[in-house]
Design a protein around this nucleic acid. Structure first.
Lengths: 110, 110
DNA sequence: AATATTTATCGTATTATTGCAATATAACAT
DNA sequence: ATGTTATATTGCAATAATACGATAAATATT
């Protein structure tokens, strides 16, 4: 049906899934990389940097904003985006808590 | 169009996005958690544990297999699944390389 | 052999996601 | 005031993802 049955899962499972989905598009990865690389705000050059149409970039930025990973400052007619370092740290911890689990190193399965 | 323009992105960006999408469903998170918790193979009880229909679970297992995160051993009529620890480590490193980046701690944006 | 059990696959309905043209909105420039 | 620039929103088309009933395939059980 295309609709995820979120209600049968834990908050943790849903949180991790929602965050993962935001990372689940290369354009959003590329946007985050660009924001990190410039180490400051980026005002308007994302459309040329990424190579998608302006409405498409705007939509991806919206999803990054929804997760709180980026914040936008209105600078006159422009909007400048930068990473929200606090939220970035939270998401980092969320993934660490999952990926950092001890998985059994047994070569033999069963 | 619902089709990602993968060709305009780097291998790294696409790899991270593809892996993220696999984590982008709570059922798949739940399956991985269960496999890790039992510390060994799981044969058949996933349908009851997760609470989705058998074909749906089978489909999620397929996606986890495609990424290489789990491997299935045929045990007679049953199939037993367990985490692939090596691949798990690779994916862990992939996320660490991204999330571990130094994001500027500047409170002031622009 | 006949039946039961277990998992995979197929088909299909429904919703989500991606992408962009067109348009709206808001500030700046002249 | 008018035009320009920058970003967001709307509307739509196309593809992807989710879920499950029905069925297939393979082994176990009786």
């Amino acid at each position: 049906m295309g609709v995820t049955k979120s209600e049968i899962f834990t908050d943790y499972q849903n949180e991790l899934a929602v965050a993962s989905r935001v990372f689940g598009h290369p354009a959003r990865i590329a946007i985050l990389q660009h924001l990190i690389k410039t180490q400051t705000c980026v005002c308007g050059d994302l459309v040329e940097v990424i190579g998608l149409a302006q409405p498409t970039i705007s939509q991806h930025l919206k999803e990054l904003k929804n997760l709180g990973l980026i914040k936008g400052n209105i600078e006159g007619a422009r909007v400048c985006y930068c990473i929200d370092a606090v939220r970035w740290g939270e998401i980092k911890k969320l993934f660490e808590s999952f990926l950092g689990q001890q998985v059994s190193a047994s070569e033999e399965c069963c």
